[in-house]
Structures are given as structure tokens and as C-alpha cells.
Amino acid sequence: MILFITNKQSEKYLTKLEIKNVTKSFKTTQGKNTSITNAIENINLSIEDGEFVCFVGPSGCGKSTLLNILAGLEKPNEGEVILNGRPIDETGPDRLMVFQESALFPWLKVIDNVEFGLKMAGVGKQKRREIAMHYLDMMQLTKFSDAYIYQLSGGMKQRVAIARALVLDPEVLLMDEPFAALDSQTRDLLLVELQLIWARTKKTIIFVTHNISESVCLGDRVIVFTHRPGKIKKEVSIEYRRPRLTEDPGLQDFQRSILYELKNEIISAKKQENPSN
């Protein structure tokens, strides 16, 4: 009842992003001991064009690491990531990241922050302004175009961050717990807005969160990760009308099934940290 195998969708969509056997480990040095920690292990996942995919997992499960690898900000030890049939090499504006904390530039006005990527791409001043204003309008931030970042609330900052990513018309939008620091009313509002933007722009979105209701509210598909080293534990397809609200009772079954999966992971993660208990 909960799990759907969505063959229908894979026929309709084209594969956008393929993650093949990706493994990433870190060297950690504690005093004289150097140990290797596997962050993620052997991840295989295929993401369709225009799909909204959420990664959930216990904290420290490597879901953010995977997102950084997709962005090209970190390199996997093994495996590869293929975007539109071509393996990705370095970071670039075709896979844009929206970070958890505000990574907006405080020395620039809102409008200049939004234009930043276009400026780097060498787009002319007038054209830049035009595109930036279009997305600021979409995010209902037109009034704040000349404000500085410190003058904005947390929710407005994340909306600017989304606009700043969208202006570059990325192939994939990567979101790393972008709403984690917001109060719940602001977050609920942004969850709806994000769905509307997604519907309007038809972007492929990968959204990392540890919040189950957020993942169910947003995702076409929710990927549940195991604790470290992160592996894919389960995929849950969520076929439900949009825009969804977090408190929609129809989503509770999905939430429950993901919670069930995650609970065991959180318990075993705890055990790993404190083996005596």
C-alpha cells in the first residue's frame, strides 16, 4: 500500500543523474592514531529529470557528503556520478547547492547576490539584472532587492539563496537542509513555496533533510539512509497530490513507514557510538 514501484514514471522521464558505486571515506587523525572512516559506501541511485528526491537519514550518515559529491565539491574515492550521460568532474553551475546556513555574501546587496553567478558567467549587466529581478519576483523579494543580507530574516535569506541558484538555470538543484535553522511557521510556508517553484521551473531537486515530515511533504521519492557508513536502506515513493502540507493526514502512513526504518538506524548509530550501553 505504501510502496509504489513507479515504472510509469521512469518511462515518462529521462535519467538525469546517475550515482554509480559511490564510496567516500575520510582520514581522521586523533593524536597518533589515523583511522579511516567510511562516510558512504557503495551508493547506487538513478534520478529522473524533473524528479524531487529527498535524502533522509540519521545525522552523520553521510547524506550531506553525498550531496557535496554530486555538487563536485568533494571527490568520491570510488565510483562516479553521471549527469546527462557524462561523468562529472568538478563543481559547476549546472549543479547548484543551497546550503543549510546562509552562504549569501554579506558584502553584496540582495540583487547583487542573486546576480553573482551570472556575473561569473560573463552575462551582461542589463541581462543580469533582468534575470535576477525575474527570480526575485518569483520569490516575492522584489522589495528587498537593494537590502543587505543582515537586514533579512532567516526565511528571506533562504529564499534569496534559492533565487541565487535558480538564476543560473541549473540542471539539478541540490539542497542541504536548507530550512533546518528556520522556525516552523516559516518552514511550512517555504515547503509549500518550494513545491510551487518546482512545479513552475520543472527542476530536478535533491533535498537532504533529517526531518521526516519535510521529506514526505516534498519528495516524489524518499531515500532512507543507514547510519555510518551510509548506504541506501530503502526507497519510498510518495504518490500524493500536490502541493502538500506537512500536516496532511494522508501523508502520515508514509511518515510512519520511514520513521520505522529510521528508528532502527538511530538506535544502532547510538550503539556504535557508545558500545557499552
Binding site: 555538487a71 563536485g72 565539491l73 563543481t91 559547476g92 553551475p93 549543479r95 547548484l96 547547492m97 546550503f99 546556513e101 552562504a103 555574501f105 553573482f116 553567478g117 556575473k119 561569473m120 558567467a121 541565487r164 543560473l168
Partner: peptide
């Protein structure tokens, strides 16, 4: 975080130095 965001948006070389 600023450097990652900037590189992600395509800033490199002298642009990265001058604008970020």
C-alpha cells in the same frame, strides 16, 4: 562556506580573488 558557494556558482581564478 563562502568559497564553496562561490566555486559552485562558477567563480574561479582572479574572479574568485577579486569578487569573493
Amino acid at each position: 562556506l563562502y568559497l564553496r558557494a562561490a566555486k559552485n556558482m562558477g567563480a574561479k581564478g582572479l574572479n574568485l580573488v577579486a569578487y569573493v
